[in-house]
Amino acid sequence: MPAPSPHRVKKAILPVAGLGTRFLPATKAMPKEMLPVVDKPLIQYAVEEARAAGIEEIILVTGRGKTAIEDHFDHCHELEHTLRERGKIEQLATVTAIMPQEGDIAYTRQQAPLGLGHAVWCARNLIGDAPFAVLLADDLIKADTPCLKQMVDAHAEVGGNMVAVMDVPRAETSRYGVIDPGARRGRLTEVRGLVEKPAPEDAPSTQCVIGRYILCPDVFDALSKRTTGAGGEIQLTDAIAEQIGRAPFHGFAFEGQRYDCGDKLGFLKATIAFALERPDLGPGLDSFLKSLAD
């Protein structure tokens, strides 16, 4: 096996071209990644997690109708001027704190909805020859140490490809990529195989991949074949599976609570969980929830 890569993970791809059909009609004119959990859009949580992991350049793979995401990470001079004139310094700081430095965020288009693997492939020319991260904003992870930071630290020791994994009920394996686990060391599990959305009776385990990845750039060679998999789409997990045996591959059992914000119930759970931790909202919300149980 090759030695761990000497390169630190500095770039992250955030695929945000999806249509968000499960949230219609809310997402008819608004990107699903702009749906707010409390008062912050999903995409901002993902960008903040990437920054906390030491990511220096963020690449957003967008599509038609996603300009609101670009605008969110840009200055709004009229709003900033109004807040400044009215002395609303705290709110001004809130909207300017999310601004990236010039050149720290880039955008490229996925021109056809051909799957997650295709979306990642669309950013190939912006990555270079170092390992990179992929974050899916739909997967919101509440953790004391951000999930990607946990993974970056572990990756520095083992290199290769790494995916975040969690245990799910066997009946739900058909919704995920599922690993065939090998030797386990702490939170790391060797991956011997990877299957996308297997039927429960065919799943090699119940250890499923969620939306955090650290990948070697060699994955683009597999993605360039444009081979379709489950759902007739170009699957990222299929391309990663092709690298097994060529580079170390580990599943990382992260510490924290994952919320599937691509699902309505998961989105509601995340909103409640994050709001309960807010000193300005938690007590009132807790009281309200208890009143519903009475």
Rank of each mutant, 00 (worst) to 15 (best):
P2F: 15
A3F: 09
A12P: 05
L14Y: 01
V16Q: 07
G18M: 15
A26D: 13
K28V: 06
P31V: 00
E33N: 11
P36W: 06
V37G: 08
E48P: 06
A50E: 05
R51W: 11
R51I: 10
I55V: 15
E56H: 04
E56F: 06
E57C: 04
E57N: 07
I58T: 10
I58D: 00
T62V: 14
K66C: 14
F73R: 01
H77N: 04
H81R: 09
R84C: 07
R86P: 00
R86F: 08
T94C: 10
V95F: 08
I98T: 08
Q101C: 09
D104A: 09
Q110W: 02
A112T: 11
A112V: 10
V120C: 08
W121G: 02
R124M: 04
N125D: 15
L126M: 15
I127G: 05
G128P: 00
P131E: 01
P131A: 08
L135I: 15
I141Q: 00
A143W: 13
L148Y: 00
L148N: 05
K149S: 15
V152C: 03
D153W: 14
H155D: 02
V158G: 00
G159R: 01
G160A: 11
V165T: 13
D167K: 12
D167S: 12
R170E: 07
V178K: 01
D180P: 00
A183C: 02
R185W: 07
R187K: 14
R192C: 00
G193C: 01
V195I: 14
P198T: 00
A199V: 06
E201K: 10
P204G: 12
C208T: 08
I210M: 08
G211K: 03
L215A: 10
C216W: 09
D218L: 06
D221Y: 05
R226Y: 13
T227M: 10
A230V: 15
E233W: 09
D238W: 12
A239W: 05
A239P: 07
A239M: 10
A241G: 03
Q243C: 14
Q243K: 12
R246W: 11
F254T: 11
E255I: 09
R258E: 15
R258T: 15
D263K: 03
K264H: 07
L268Y: 15
A273Q: 10
A273N: 06
A275R: 09
E277D: 15
R278Y: 06
L285F: 06
L292R: 12
